[in-house]
Amino acid sequence: EETVVIALYDYQTNDPQELALRRNEEYCLLDSSEIHWWRVQDRNGHEGYVPSSYLVEKS
């Protein structure tokens, strides 16, 4: 079962390993094994790492 997370803030990045976030957008959580950086996928299928503190699990 996939976990959906919501971005609390915008996040901009130039790092190809990371993914930009848009506030209030939903993302699919792929990997939360790292404490500070979670791997997520956006609705267009793009994947990357984002700061975990910018996300909240959708209830």
Rank of each mutant, 00 (worst) to 15 (best):
residue 50 V to S: 07
residue 29 L to F: 03
residue 20 A to N: 14
residue 35 I to K: 15
residue 9 Y to A: 14
residue 8 L to P: 01
residue 53 S to P: 08
residue 18 E to M: 12
residue 45 G to H: 07
residue 32 S to P: 07
residue 58 K to W: 03
residue 52 S to C: 07
residue 35 I to L: 11
residue 46 H to M: 10
residue 7 A to F: 01
residue 13 T to A: 15
residue 11 Y to P: 00
residue 16 P to K: 10
residue 20 A to M: 10
residue 30 L to W: 01
residue 44 N to L: 11
residue 33 S to Y: 03
residue 22 R to N: 10
residue 30 L to E: 04
residue 21 L to F: 02
residue 44 N to M: 12
residue 11 Y to G: 01
residue 31 D to R: 03
residue 59 S to G: 15
residue 26 E to I: 04
residue 12 Q to H: 12
residue 11 Y to W: 14
residue 4 V to F: 14
residue 45 G to T: 04
residue 42 D to L: 00
residue 52 S to L: 01
residue 43 R to V: 14
residue 15 D to A: 15
residue 43 R to E: 13
residue 34 E to P: 09
residue 24 N to D: 13
residue 10 D to N: 07
residue 40 V to G: 00
residue 45 G to I: 02
residue 29 L to M: 05
residue 53 S to D: 15
residue 11 Y to S: 04
residue 14 N to R: 11
residue 2 E to W: 10
residue 34 E to T: 15
residue 29 L to G: 00
residue 17 Q to M: 10
residue 32 S to F: 06
residue 39 R to C: 07
residue 27 Y to I: 00
residue 15 D to W: 06
residue 20 A to V: 13
residue 37 W to F: 15
residue 8 L to T: 09
residue 28 C to H: 15
residue 28 C to A: 15
residue 17 Q to L: 10
residue 30 L to A: 05
residue 13 T to P: 15
residue 3 T to D: 09
residue 32 S to M: 08
residue 38 W to A: 09
residue 44 N to R: 11
residue 36 H to E: 13
residue 13 T to G: 13
residue 32 S to K: 12
residue 27 Y to D: 00
residue 46 H to D: 07
residue 10 D to P: 03
residue 38 W to K: 04
residue 16 P to T: 12
residue 22 R to F: 14
residue 34 E to D: 13
residue 14 N to D: 15
residue 57 E to T: 08
residue 54 Y to M: 10
residue 58 K to A: 08
residue 13 T to S: 11
residue 26 E to N: 04
residue 12 Q to K: 08
residue 20 A to S: 13
residue 47 E to Q: 14
residue 21 L to V: 12
residue 42 D to G: 07
residue 11 Y to Q: 01
residue 40 V to P: 00
residue 1 E to D: 08
residue 15 D to L: 14
residue 12 Q to G: 13
residue 35 I to C: 14
residue 39 R to Y: 10
residue 35 I to V: 13
residue 55 L to N: 02
residue 16 P to E: 12
residue 42 D to N: 07
residue 17 Q to D: 09
